[in-house]
Design a protein around this nucleic acid. Sequence first.
RNA 1: GGAGGAAUAGCGAAGUGGCCAAACGCGGCUGACUGUAAAUCAGUUCCUUCGGGUUCGGUAGUUCAAAUCUACCUUCCUCCA
Length: 374
Amino acid sequence: MKDFYLEILHVDKNCGARYGILHTPHGDVEVPMFMPVGTLATVKTLSPEEVKSLGAGVILSNTYHLHLRPGEDIVAKAGGLHKFMNYDGPILTDSGGFQVFSLAENRKISEEGVVFKSHLNGDRMLFSPETVMDIEEKLGADIIMAFDECIPYPVDEKYVKNSVERTLRWAKRCKEAHKREGQALFGIVQGGEYEEHRKHCAEELAKMDFPGYSIGGTSIGEPKDVFSKMVDYSVKYLPPEKPRYLMGVGSLDFIFEGIEKGVDMFDCVLPTRIARHGALMTSKGRVNIRDAKYKEDFTPLDDECDCYTCKNYTKAYLRHLYVADETFGKRLLSMHNIRFLIHMMEEARKAIKEDRFLEFKEEMLAKYGSKKGF
RNA sequence: GGAGGAAUAGCGAAGUGGCCAAACGCGGCUGACUGUAAAUCAGUUCCUUCGGGUUCGGUAGUUCAAAUCUACCUUCCUCCA
């Protein structure tokens, strides 16, 4: 696919971190990058222009949720997701594989696919590699995910083995079913914490020759050392020239861990979700803006931050908006958290180009306090 | 002037003899959130040196035991003159 490829421009001499440009039908974006999540065709509370102004390239959306509401046919009629949501940058749709995990009580897995009971009205519907490809083609994102099973952690090895084999068969079916031009279909590496299964999964996917590969099944409650292994065991066996996407990772220390190992793309609901709940990522560590100590704090949320929120508003005001449950507060806080992560990515890219990513990582984690949870 | 009714933790409001330091809601305080069923969820909210102490308008009683029963007082509400 000539309009989608990763151009690797530099690999850090001291680790696996790499800098490059991902070419997509809706524009070029630099990697490593963080992609804000807009599950329902909107990054909650923000306009596409705002998301773009924060430095975001790719926006994520979700097959399961858009299938339920408004339905892929309506999106297609609207002219596709880009037009529908008025975003002309690259869009990535997740396949619903994560919902196999997050909505586990409402679904049943079989070889054919997954029957979900809609969380909205109880409708039963089959998500199979074929139906998911059909939906994702109609949505029309630039990057689409194969339908996989995101398995929980911890889970016994036998389950992992069976699930990986099935995810691989599904990946093959996705590849065969996917026909639309101008869409990059990514295969997803699963395998839990087991090197044997991650390796097998990555190698088999590589044989199928996807334009990019995702690493799934992480950041679901496993300890950091386990997370690290999961990423290692996956990246190691993936073709270096293809983009690597570590799914659902949004805390700074986990992202840096991924970059160091050679991951290019990250997405996470974390910055936007915790922002709506009053938690902020700042250069002083984590801030809960609701806390009483900010009642009369007329300084910016983060004096090192260049975002609209930090340039124009005080903690006392942001706290007031939060406490008063004003929507504007959630918007300002969401902007800040997204900008914080994207700014970190910009700095990380600079560091990689200068072969000092490892120092940069240590410096940032010491400063931002990786123990504080982001 | 007369007749009823009501007073419970910051607020609202249950409780009408022991299982009551007192349900629940709000407000306050705090924490969590990782391919979004999340503008959500959880904890905490009389004092304490964690042994205990002091509470349910006030005072005095009844009782082994009172927020709960009795008497009086105070305040408030409604109705009648």
